Computed example of a mutant assay.
Amino acid sequence: MNTLAESVTERAAPDAEELAGRSYAEYATAMLRDRLIVLNIPPGAPINDEQIGRELGIGRTPVREALKRLEAEHLVAVYPRRGTFAAPVDITDLASITEMRALLEPLAASRAARFASTPKRESMRDLAARLTALDTRAVSPIALMRHDLEVHRSIYAANGNSHLEEDLIKYDNLATRIWCLVLDRLPDVAAHVSEHVELLNAIVDGNAERAADLALTHVTGFEGLIRSVI
């Protein structure tokens, strides 16, 4: 199994477009978070800050800051005298994660339907159109998971409560890691992702009650789908 530490290619520092207004630490956090969520860095794999810095074209200090942030998000585990590793994925956490998401996801969807700005509604409308046009047969399961993440992030960002957004991102990241762990056993990921079209449209239309109901159905359906294969 290849780990990040075994496949490092040194590169130049990220340019302004890649940084998109972020600090090096924020950039490193985003890059590593994505890989950890979809298990491109496998659970338990060692993570070396110097090697990551060379790969991303940045110094060790922002990488270390990124790893501290990811440790707080339960995506990285630090063991004294052993080092830093990708956090394990514990499927037994599914019930606890779902309990929190079942409370918070409907709230975020309802708030987004009520409070989303016009630009955010247009962005969600465009996202729903892209998902409708997507040929799911031609897209890899991991790519579909990235679409799933994009939908959730857009809803969280539109809800108007930054604390709620932060908490939901954390729980959704952990849920996605569990999903990716059993992805090859799931019967129909595409159908789950396509559910988002109706949810996005409800938010765009300002239908808060329907958006909340659809969000809850989506979360409980996710847990049921995972439990069907474990």
Rank of each mutant, 00 (worst) to 15 (best):
V63T: 01
L164G: 05
D184K: 15
E17G: 04
R177G: 10
E99C: 08
R22S: 14
A158W: 09
A108Q: 04
A16R: 08
T61H: 00
D213A: 11
L216Q: 08
L39T: 04
K120M: 09
T176C: 10
D205L: 11
G221Y: 09
A12Y: 10
R64C: 09
P119Q: 09
A129D: 12
I142T: 14
E6I: 05
H147N: 04
Y156W: 15
I37P: 02
A108F: 00
T132M: 05
A28D: 00
E50K: 13
A77H: 03
V182S: 09
E26A: 15
S117K: 06
S23A: 02
E73K: 11
I47G: 00
A13M: 14
S162P: 08
K170T: 12
D49T: 03
G44E: 01
D188N: 15
D135L: 14
S7F: 01
M100N: 15
D172S: 15
S110L: 03
L104Q: 10
R54G: 06
L168W: 11
R64F: 05
L186I: 15
S110D: 10
A28S: 07
R35H: 07
I155C: 04
S140H: 07
Q51E: 05
N161S: 12
E99H: 13
F115P: 00
H152A: 14
S96H: 14
C180R: 12
A208K: 06
I178C: 07
F222T: 11
E166H: 14
G44C: 01
L56G: 08
S162L: 13
R121T: 04
D126L: 12
A77E: 08
E26H: 12
V8W: 02
F85K: 02
V193I: 14
A5H: 06
L19F: 12
A28T: 10
A20K: 10
E18K: 06
P88F: 11
T3E: 06
E195Q: 14
L104I: 07
L19I: 09
V63W: 01
E195L: 13
R185S: 08
F85Y: 12
E150W: 01
E195F: 14
S123I: 02
R33Y: 01
D34P: 03
S117P: 06
E198V: 04
L127Q: 02
E165M: 02
N2G: 00
E26N: 10
A133R: 15
R227Y: 00
A175L: 11
G224D: 07
N161R: 10
D93H: 14
R69H: 08
E50Y: 14
I37T: 12
P14D: 06
V189N: 13
A95Q: 13
E50C: 04
R101S: 04
W179M: 12
N48E: 10
A77K: 06
E105H: 08
A129S: 12
I178K: 09
L144G: 09
D184R: 15
K120E: 05
P80T: 03
L174D: 00
E223I: 11
V219T: 15
V78T: 15
R177C: 12
L181P: 00
S194T: 12
I52Q: 02
D213C: 03
T61D: 01
A175E: 04
D126M: 06
N173H: 09
S110P: 10
V151N: 05
A158P: 11
A28R: 03
L94R: 04
R69T: 15
G21R: 11
S228I: 07
A128Q: 07
